[in-house]
Design a binder for these strands. Structure first.
Lengths: 159, 159
DNA sequence: CACTCTCATTAGCCGTTATTATTGAGAAAT
DNA sequence: ATTTCTCAATAATAACGGCTAATGAGAGTG
């Protein structure tokens, strides 16, 4: 019975939820609903979406969340500085932003539940499975991620 | 541009991380390290594990986390009340507990990012993919879940 | 237009204190 | 043997106040 510690280590998967908050706090900044909403907008739109400040403004407006343009500009700059967004400069003037983390749209994680070691991998069959499940239920696919919980070699041995 | 609300609804996926904490707080209860550890024990042991109070006590002890038996009994009862655990009564006297949510060991979610509607499905290919990824990296598989983010039929249409 | 700045107002976060749920140890019950 | 109870000690939260980051509105800039 030496997988005990492994069982205890609180699942590393959980950290996926909080990086904006901790990132902000580390720098003495604050997590505001506006910042949350703006980042959520990108995170929920899946990868590959590139939005302008105006786009963000309108999207939020239509969703009954008025956020001032000034704040949107400020927040977009902030999120780029923090590495959450990429900034694309269009030659015609005007900037677009897109999620930085989603450069691998359908990537999957192999996570050691004990030490948190994580390997990424891709697998066409998995993507396919997500596509099929979506189709079967009439859903429009955005993206899919497979989380595999496991024990890494090191944690299996040196108890 | 009518997937607006969908993009805003903070991803239902995120709630997977916090349900114990929010559940407790809603009822005026407190999230203690002991409660967290006991639930983690079940969550990280994968599905199908059925443990007695004594088992939990010993497992925690071996992991250098002493939690009194009284607390373990109290917490197990609490987690059952809250729906996190199932309680199995053995005829020979003595109860066993197991994770309630993991009744489908390798189940996958199709989640509407807008309304949160969730469909479960299973897929052998996905399980296979997890198994292969684990093997390739020398990991010992515990379980895998595929999260497919999508828009449900309703949310695609009535904007 | 596409974006930044100014400034009064708002509100997030960090201490601290006060409240009370929870724990641990052991006795008691079943 | 398995589970519950008692009660003093502990510690998680709620509550409050102060500090100051962040917002919104609108003017300003190129």
């Amino acid at each position: 019975m030496n997988k005990v510690k492994a069982l205890l280590a609180s699942s590393p998967l959980k950290q996926y939820g909080r990086p904006l908050e901790v990132g902000l706090h580390q720098e003495g900044r604050r997590l505001t609903p506006q910042r949350r909403k703006i980042l959520d907008l990108f995170e929920n739109s899946g990868s590959g979406n590139h939005l302008s400040a105006e786009d963000v403004h309108h999207l939020l407006l239509e969703a009954k969340s008025r956020v001032s343009l000034a704040t949107i500009y400020r927040t977009l700059r902030l999120l780029v500085e923090m590495g959450f967004l990429y900034e694309l400069e269009l030659s015609e003037g005007g900037h677009r932003f897109e999620l930085a983390s989603n450069d691998h749209p359908d990537h999957h994680h192999l996570v050691c539940v004990r030490c948190g070691r994580t390997e990424e991998f891709e697998n066409e069959q998995v993507i396919q499975a997500g596509r099929i499940a979506a189709e079967k239920n009439g859903f429009k696919l955005i993206e899919s991620t497979l989380n595999v919980r496991a024990l890494c070699p090191g944690c299996q041995h040196n108890n």
